[in-house]
């Protein structure tokens, strides 16, 4: 596997370390296809995702948005019968290269899901450092430092610093989601994938997550799948619109700056979708 940005270990092979000096989180998707058994869910998708910016993926239900997102960090293949083909280059390294380690890939490309899913039996603190502990980090001072830094980055520290030993499940929905974001950030990823991260949250909690997304883009490449068009318009720099083709596989219809896509889309299908006239 080639490595364009690192002199040493690749960002995604098992030889790499969690804290390796990876690149800036540039993502290039080339001719990506994804299947569930014989059903092709994503067809020939190519996309260059701007590093340290927010890219929103929008499209009607079942158009392959979440499948596409899960392909980026090799979560898709975890489902039974699911497979993917094509390339996903993280800072030049193909996460689907034969020697790429999916576990390492997922450390570099973190993910936040629709429903907050903190580990229910763990404290707030343990939730954040669970990944590091799993990776063998035992140094308490380092764990403390990472926990605080991650919770601060997730804009949660001020709300939980006096209850780090309480159960993560005892937090509010919005706090739980930020805890999950902190947990992902603790692994020092370059990329953060978010699959409808606010769909289970009220408007106030949603607003906090959106503020956080805007804040995080300074240091991370963020790809967010959302059904909420206004959310895509509010938080993203670029937007990709996916739609089912005649074979019911998701295809990229339009990709461009969010400001343009929501004011003057170039494709009629995009216009019809974002104005609510179909989909």
């Amino acid at each position: 596997m080639s490595n364009n940005n690192n002199d040493g270990a690749s960002a995604v092979t098992s030889a790499g370390t969690v804290h390796s000096e990876a690149g800036h989180g540039s993502l290039v998707v080339e001719d990506l296809q994804a299947w569930y058994g014989r059903f092709r869910a994503v067809a020939n998708l190519s996309l260059t995702i701007t590093p340290r910016a927010v890219t929103a993926i929008i499209g009607p239900s079942g158009c392959g948005k979440s499948t596409f997102l899960r392909c980026i960090n090799r979560m898709h293949e975890v489902a039974r019968g699911a497979r993917a083909a094509g390339k996903v280059l993280l800072d030049g390294d193909d996460v689907y290269a034969p020697d790429a380690d999916p576990v390492q890939v997922r450390r570099h490309i973190g993910m936040v899901f629709q429903k907050p899913n903190p580990f229910p039996m763990m404290s707030v603190y343990d939730n954040v450092v669970a990944g590091l502990k799993l990776a063998g980090v035992k140094n308490r001072a380092m764990l403390d430092e990472v926990a605080e830094r991650s919770l601060r980055r997730a804009a949660l520290w001020d709300e939980v610093n006096d209850k780090l030993n309480n159960s993560g499940a005892a937090l509010s929905g919005g706090q739980q989601q930020r805890l999950c974001i902190a947990r992902a950030l603790a692994m020092e990823p370059q990329v953060l994938l978010m699959d409808e991260p606010c769909s289970a949250l009220d408007p106030v909690a949603t607003s906090k997550i959106e503020d956080l997304i805007r804040e995080l883009r300074q240091n991370y490449t963020i790809v967010i799948v959302t059904h909420n068009m206004q959310q895509a318009a509010r938080v993203s720099d670029h937007t990709a619109f996916l739609l089912l083709d005649e074979d019911r596989a998701g295809r990229l219809v339009e990709y461009g700056p969010t400001s343009q896509l929501f004011t003057n889309p170039q494709d009629r299908r995009t216009e019809d979708y974002i104005t609510g006239r179909f989909g």
């Binding site: 206004q230 318009a233 004011t263 003057n264 216009e271 974002i274 104005t275």
Partner: peptide
């Protein structure tokens, strides 16, 4: 109504 695209224009 949160209009976008041509509706907003």
């Amino acid at each position: 109504q949160e209009p976008v695209a041509r509706d907003l224009r």
